[in-house]
């Protein structure tokens, strides 16, 4: 199993607002994220899930420890190249003023190149109509905007997609279609997906391997099946109660 990311004793701190001290967000995180699979990250609110994604995209640098991407120390890599190789999609879709086409051409335009995929091809990949390219992006529904956000990240032809609770604001149908799309991307194009989710059922449906973070520390890492056996031994419904019912 080839590692896409390898994290060694990664710690991340920020200046605590309103005080002189620093707040520890992640401590001693050591994990391997395999290439070409869907790796899910879960944990209670404030456990450091999104911060970990930011480190993988170099939107932040770790305070301690090292992260390797394809065997290279990320601290020594060109930030802009990493971000084009490692796409990120946020929880709330953000559309820029202009057409869907303009939004989809943004990534390649920023680096001054052209994408292998046309905006229409990207929309089709996302299960959207090709004609949508002409529409005003901010007028799309939440589900459509999130799929356009995914397509926009894919226009950079990334090796990795980081997804930060991308379906949490969507209805069940839209969430389901995004899941299918991401799984297909992973299987057909070999893209590594790191997916932060609160939804335990989603984690089981999409994740090959999973990480549970509690207070910024690794509480569990292994396959999603092992995760299920450890935290949901009975057939009780899996939901976010895992984080509030006292088991963790």
């Amino acid at each position: 199993m080839q590692a896409k990311f390898l994290l060694e004793k990664v710690g991340y701190e920020v200046e605590a607002s309103g005080t002189q001290g620093r707040q520890r967000i992640l401590s001693d995180v050591g994990i391997t994220i395999p290439a070409g699979q869907i790796f899910t990250i879960t944990g209670p609110s404030g456990s450091g899930k999104s911060s970990l994604l930011y480190l993988l995209n170099l939107l932040r640098d770790p305070t301690t420890g090292v992260i390797f991407l394809d065997g290279q120390n990320m601290a020594e890599m060109n930030v802009l190249e990493v971000r084009r190789k490692v796409g990120i999609v946020f929880q709330k879709p953000f559309m820029f003023k202009g057409s869907v086409r303009e939004n989809l051409l943004l990534g390649p335009k920023l680096k001054g190149s052209e994408s292998r995929y046309s905006p229409e091809d990207l929309l089709e990949m996302m299960g959207l109509e090709r004609e949508m390219a002409r529409k005003e992006a901010i007028l799309l529904s939440g589900g459509e905007q999130q799929r356009v956000s995914l397509a926009r990240a894919l226009a950079n032809e990334p090796d990795v997609l980081l997804l930060d609770e991308v379906t949490s604001a969507l209805d069940a149908d839209s969430a389901c279609s995004v899941e299918k799309l991401v799984k297909a991307l992973c299987e057909e194009k070999g893209i590594t997906v790191v997916w932060v989710t609160h939804d335990m059922e989603q984690l089981m449906r999409v994740g090959d391997n999973s990480l549970l973070l509690i207070d910024g520390r690794v509480a569990f890492t292994g396959t999603s099946d092992e995760f299920k056996h450890q935290y949901f031994p009975s057939k009780r419904e899996m939901n976010t109660e895992l984080f509030t019912d006292g088991r963790l």
Partner: peptide
């Protein structure tokens, strides 16, 4: 902030 983070995530420089 949100817009800037999306742009940085797409590979924009701080200036872009």
């Amino acid at each position: 902030r949100e817009e800037i983070l999306v742009l940085l995530g797409l590979g924009a420089t701080a200036r872009q």
